[in-house]
Amino acid sequence: MRKIPEAKPLFIERMKSLLGNDFNNYMEILKSEPVRSIRTNTLKITPEKLKEKLKNKSWIIKQPFKEYPEIMIVENNLEPGELGRALEHLLGYYYIQELASMLPIIALKPKPDETILDLCSSPGSKTTQMASFMNNSGTIVANEVSLGRIKILASNLERCGVTNTIITKKDGVVLCKKLKKENFQFDKILVDAPCSGEGTLRSTLKTYLMWNIKTVKSVSRIQKNLLSSALDILKPNGELIYSTCTHSPEENEEVIDFIMKKFNDIKIEKISLPVKSREGITKWQDKEYLEEIKYACRIYPQDNNTEGFFLVKIKKLK
């Protein structure tokens, strides 16, 4: 077990409220190193061929899901940074991606020939995963507001050989408004919103120190605006995934409750995932959320030995 920073008392109190008896299991798994998961970039190589190449390096590879052979766990104790320095990574044969972070695209199910907006796309893990699902056809508009993060996004799209993507640089809310004005609409949208990152404690220890309730409240407002704007440019019958890597209900269920009450032409769809997930909550502190929010998925680290995540699928009605 490694040494981890002490979590802030308010964070502990909130997680106890969310998890009840399971809180100790949660705290226990946070002490362990995250699993080394990678995703085969099927635009360049098949999972079988990649597995063979990695086995030749004496890496022990596990494919945890029969229906998603592209997802692999490297079970060896590698040197720090070894996954990123490997020739196969430099050539774009795989993407280092936390398993829970792969779930939004599995739920979105991008198809060839669809037009998809990835509203907050850097560093590009989900954009490259989308492109793989689409076999580089259709079109992805990958948006990012920060120039620094666009460079990281562009570099990852290049390394993965993604040819069906247009990168735009705009604040997400402004982008959606401008696209709406020009009558752009999308078959599918991913809003992988900026968040307080509570789900990333295992891989990003500094989150323990950075966490504060003010951030939770302020990003919640941003998330509501982003999601509302995105829904305005979703086609009728179109599907949208809203996801965060955090557990706080203010950034998750509260955002969904807000937009469900604002829009009368949307509904929440059930999601089928290859991992254990828990229902969205309908009560938090003094607030009550709509009953159908239970169809959202909460991913806790202790359930699947992953990071934490939240995702929900919203469908626009005709």
Binding site: T115, V141, N143, L157, K169, K170, L175, F184
Partner: peptide
Amino acid sequence: GNFNEKQIKNLERTVPIEG
């Protein structure tokens, strides 16, 4: 991608394209 030249140009007029 399946955006044609006209759609790309239209998008470019609407928002800054970085790539």
